[in-house]
């Protein structure tokens, strides 16, 4: 649920969408079978972390959900299937356009949707504020640190108020401290905006800290080896990382990963 009053928001969030995958297969032309029959149901507005060994098919799954790739069999449905819901995607690398200042990078999705310039700039400024980048609106990506670029990329995803937010190891390349701060920001934004979040990560601790539910994939082709609802409080802060409950969840995810690796 969105919190009653937040200064960062000028319009109510329209909530998350449900994502359903049934019997999804994806086999590449090279013969590599990335996903061989996968069922997954993500509740509207849930925050789900996706863990799995490298090369098991996590990015492939995200691309299928985003509609950037087609499944060879099975179906992927996002939302009620009548209107195409707004989906945002944050890649592992920021992928900003180096010739545009931050403001115009963040405004891109609105620009492509035909939103007039004054309105999209206002919304882009708001999204930059959400990720603490308000001061860097007029700077170019080449003039930013890696963490700032990643935040700009996150702002670009948030600017359309997505009902589904897909993140593919977004903070993997950042230092520990920056990552923790961005984790906190992301979590706060999720509570604020209420979209469905699917978060791919290698980091067990990050998955446990962020998500309500964690899905662990086996080696390729990806199968689900564990699907846990994390038994952790809604309010999360640094002290949670030292909590025994947190350690228990981490351990469970770790064991699932090991099982999936061996499978």
């Amino acid at each position: 649920m969105p919190e009653p009053h937040s200064p960062a928001i000028s319009q109510p969030a329209n909530g998350g969408v449900r994502v359903v995958l049934r019997g999804v297969r994806r086999r590449f032309a090279t013969g590599v079978e990335a996903i061989a029959g996968l069922d997954l149901d993500l509740a509207a507005g849930s925050f789900v972390a996706l863990l799995g060994p490298s090369g098991c098919g996590k990015s492939t799954l995200l691309r299928l959900v985003a509609g950037l790739d087609r499944a060879d069999a099975g179906e992927v449905s996002v939302g009620d299937g009548t209107t195409r819901p707004s989906i945002a995607y944050v890649f592992q690398d920021p992928h900003l356009m180096p010739w545009r200042r931050n403001l115009d990078n963040v405004a891109l999705p609105l620009e492509l949707a035909g939103v007039p310039v004054a309105e999209r700039h206002e919304k882009a400024r708001e999204a930059l504020r959400m990720v603490d980048l308000a001061d860097a609106a007029d700077r170019y990506p080449g003039e930013l640190s890696g963490g700032m670029r990643m935040r700009a990329s996150l702002a670009r995803a948030l600017v359309i108020r997505p009902r589904l937010l897909l993140l593919d190891e977004p903070f993997a390349a950042l230092d520990e401290l920056t990552r923790h701060r961005l984790d906190d920001q992301l979590r706060a934004l999720w509570i604020e905006l209420g979209m469905t979040v699917l978060f791919v990560t290698h980091a067990i601790g990050e998955a446990a800290y962020l998500a309500e539910r964690a899905v662990v994939f086996s080696r390729r082709p990806a199968r689900i080896v564990a699907d846990r609802t994390l038994d952790l409080p809604r309010e999360r802060s640094f002290s949670l990382r030292a909590d025994p409950a947190f350690a228990r969840e981490e351990r469970a995810l770790y064991e699932a990963l090991v099982r999936g690796e061996a499978a």
Partner: peptide, 19 residues
Amino acid sequence: GLRDLFRLYGAGRFATLVK
């Protein structure tokens, strides 16, 4: 990655070419 992004946000051929 940017190509994918343009596709995701529904950019047409002309917009993709020019922008």
